[in-house]
Computed example of a mutant assay.
Amino acid sequence: MSTYKVAVITGASQGIGAGLVTAYRKLGYAVVATSRSIAPSDDAMVRTIAGDISAPAVGGRVIELAMDAFGRVDTLVNNAGVFVSKPFTEYTDEDYDLVTGVNLRGFFEISQRAVEIMLAQGGGHVVNITTTLAEQADSRVPAALAALTKGGLNSVTRSLAIEYASRGIRVNAVAPGVIRTPMHPAETHDVLAGLHPVGRMGEIGDIIDAIVYLETAPFVTGEILHVDGGQSAGH
């Protein structure tokens, strides 16, 4: 078994996920990075695997690769997610399947497999990326499917934190506001900035810093850390 720690990161090809790969390498971790399409890495300590995390067996395969490559899994960051904003009555079956598939099933299988490994090792850390909109609804951003799925991740974060608190596994979440990533076209940035009391969008580094904090905070578990420019406090 390796002497260094190993992080598994989903949704790792761009944006926050790609930044997390770099951040965990700086912390000295080996990394297994996955997304639907992801280029091979020229870093021997980074293994990439392409796959749709919402599809059955993909999550298990990612954890198997981590074990084959590095022999352990210390941290799982469930970063993969999709967001579809529509009036509630306009959501389609396809929207429902997409959002629940990535946000819920994408969390479920890979997390089960990772926790099994962490139990055998005697500890580990799971971090879920949710959204402030799950707790602080905004009339300007209809987001029922985000509330349904990311709200579930907030709840399961607390549930698993308590289930495994005595066995060395911490479970936390980061609830972002709107972050400047390739998901948001530049022409929308002014409007999106206005959704935050501080008057700007979040940056990828804001979320990475929060996750690195949680990684290095052994007394913190069951926490939903809001990184949202004040959205969760009110408007």
Rank of each mutant, 00 (worst) to 15 (best):
Y4A: 15
K5W: 15
G11L: 01
Q14K: 15
A18D: 07
V21R: 05
V21F: 13
Y24W: 08
R25E: 09
K26S: 15
L27E: 15
Y29H: 15
R36M: 04
I38V: 12
S41E: 09
S41L: 13
T48C: 13
I49F: 09
A50Q: 14
A50R: 10
G51E: 09
I53W: 01
A55K: 15
A57V: 13
G60R: 01
R61T: 05
R61W: 12
L65A: 07
A66F: 07
A66C: 11
A69F: 10
G71F: 14
T75K: 03
T75E: 01
T75A: 15
L76W: 05
A80L: 10
G81I: 05
G81Q: 07
V84R: 05
P87F: 10
F88N: 10
E90N: 14
T92M: 10
D93N: 12
V99Q: 04
G101Y: 00
G101K: 04
L104W: 04
R105K: 14
G106T: 10
F107E: 07
F107T: 01
I110Q: 05
Q112D: 11
V115I: 12
I117R: 08
M118Q: 07
A120S: 08
G122E: 14
G124I: 03
H125F: 02
N128Q: 02
I129K: 00
T131W: 04
Q136D: 00
D138Y: 04
V141H: 01
L148D: 06
R158G: 04
L160K: 08
S166F: 13
S166V: 12
V171E: 08
V171I: 13
N172R: 12
A173F: 01
A173N: 07
A175S: 04
A175W: 02
P176Y: 05
V178F: 06
H184R: 00
E187N: 15
T188I: 09
H189A: 04
G194P: 04
G202Y: 02
I204S: 02
G205Q: 02
A210H: 00
V212E: 02
Y213S: 03
E215L: 07
G229R: 01
